[in-house]
Nucleic acid binder design. Sequence first.
DNA 1: GCTCCTCGAGTTCT
DNA 2: CTCGAGGAGC
Length: 691
Amino acid sequence: MDTLLENAEKRIRELTETINFHNYRYYVLDEPLIDDAEYDRLMRELQRIEKEFPQLKYPDSPSQRVGGEPLESFRQVKHEEPMLSLNNAFTIKEVFEFDRRIKDELKKEEDALSSVDYICEPKLDGVAISLLYRDGLIEHAATRGDGEIGEEITANARTIKGIPFRLFGDDYPTLLEVRGEVYMPKHSFKILNKRAKAKGEKIFVNPRNAAAGSLRLLDSKITAKRDLFIYCYSIGSVEGGVLPSTHGEHLKKLKQWGFRICPEVQKAQDVDACIEYYNGIKDKRDELSYAIDGVVYKVDEIKHRKIIGFIAKAPLWAIAHKFPAEEEISIIEAIEFQVGRTGSLTPVARLSPVFVGGATISNASLHNMDILQRLDVRDGDSVVVRRAGDVIPQVVSVIVELRDQNAVPTELPIVCPECNSPVKRVKGESVIRCGAGLSCKAQRKEAIKHFASLHALNIDGLGDKVVEQFVNVGLIESPVDLFGLKEEQIAKLEGQGAKSARNLILAINKSRHTTYSRFLYALGIKGIGVETAKSLSDAFARLKELMTATETDFEAKRNNYEFSNIGPVIINNIIEFFQNDLNTKVVEALIDPDIGGIHWDEKRIDLDQKTTLPLLGMVFVLTGSMENMTRSQAKAHLEALGGKVSNSVSKNTNYVIAASGAGSKLEKAKELKLNILNEQEFLKFLRNHED
DNA sequence: GCTCCTCGAGTTCT
DNA sequence: CTCGAGGAGC
């Protein structure tokens, strides 16, 4: 019996040490020695023996990473040494001033000082925590809190990847406090939110909130399932041991003892090298797996730090050099509802202007009712505004703490703000619509804008502003009226001269000659975009045929034509559109030679010729901007050869043409191992096929 | 019934 | 660009 117990004890010790070592290889050194399956096998064996002999479990057993019993609440702990915050620099000038102050301070003590070494590290956007080790064993972990007092989160910290339970080596101090930043990788954050969304649970605004929220869970078993990591960046209080003389050496020691150190940490010989580091990190920011909001420079020599000292609550020997803000706070000045072409009422936030992400933002769409209600945005609210990698401003969240007590929830409109007709909401959809159709002035305007737009009749000089003006003064009511306009009428209007009037009339005349599919698209039937209009024009050779088509006619076409992406919903939209008398009258007037005069060439597609096109059935995706041609020219070239140009990359894509400035689509193409052409290769490709 | 893919719609600023 | 809905395939 004794030998059984002894064997178990020996094996448990072995396994504990082995697994802790492999954790170190994997998370700290990033050089695993065994594969995941082997690791799992060791872990399962340990768990099995520990279950049998619970009294033998070691305090540093890696099995505890799965979490323990839930807590009632968190205990507050006072930090031995306060956890300070850093001063911020937003400009290079501020960084130079920081460097100058340090040199001045040090010169008082050291005459021969030439330059100061700095350690540069990315500033992780996570949660700062403190870890306390006594005799090499983890004793407790605490959040930063207000810097003086934090919360004890030891059970949760045990589940974080890269936190050792027992230190490696034997040269560690008896008491050692280590500080680091806990973070959730960007991709883990996305997955977490996706799952939460699917389950209808609360989603997190950003990876930092996800990390903070996960650390503050009372049930560490749930924390264990969250993908949390740590990068350690400094040593706090120390007793019973001697530390090296520079910060860089401290980090090396920490790594030896088993802590995870960010691989981007670098030494800079002077302030210029710091700036170079800043620019380098800024460029690779998106590639990093974790979110950062700047970089930190710290004086390397510990003895220098003592000379430089502190002011208020921040050290003068370190500074955070921040990237331009991607998020800013603004005030909601009003929430308005815009009426779209399809009658959709889109809530839009009017904001007090803020500079964020390189541009001043004063409007942000709130997209639809679901989002409006989920955010619970109210008039006068302080909100977080973002303009991240993408261009489009977005209201991220409301700062509820700053809300005026009297603020009332935003009411959904019952009537259209433009025409006062009652609003409709289709069950299950997140949009509400004005049901008045073209009798709503706003929808008429949008319909005309759409009619004149680039991919429809492409009428030059008839932009949004001009349409607004013409409709407001009663010059036009429908697209038909455009074709009855006289130069004198236009020239009389404010802001219009004889010249612009003539140009506009010329453009309108030119637009009379168009293509069948452009015309179909221009009508603005719900769900009919450029692509679907093309399919329709192929399937129904004559407009009359399409206008009178019944459901059975559409079904019949399915067998004869490539009729993809047109299902019952779209078919119904088309039939409804042409059943409306107002619509058919407009269409007939537009093509009437005496009124609209719109016409197109009836094209006879030679099927034999079509099948010999070299790129038939091939799907291309264009991304980035080319030097030698525009995107639409490239598209035209490909389509002339029978190719299809799609907007989204998938495994069905044959070629991705990635010119300079290509972004996420190129990433995805690489992921899917698709054929990728750069601009030069693409031009060659075209030449080869156009012969 | 579920999952993947594609298209349409809406949106901001320079 | 992103989101969501429609459509198709399994």
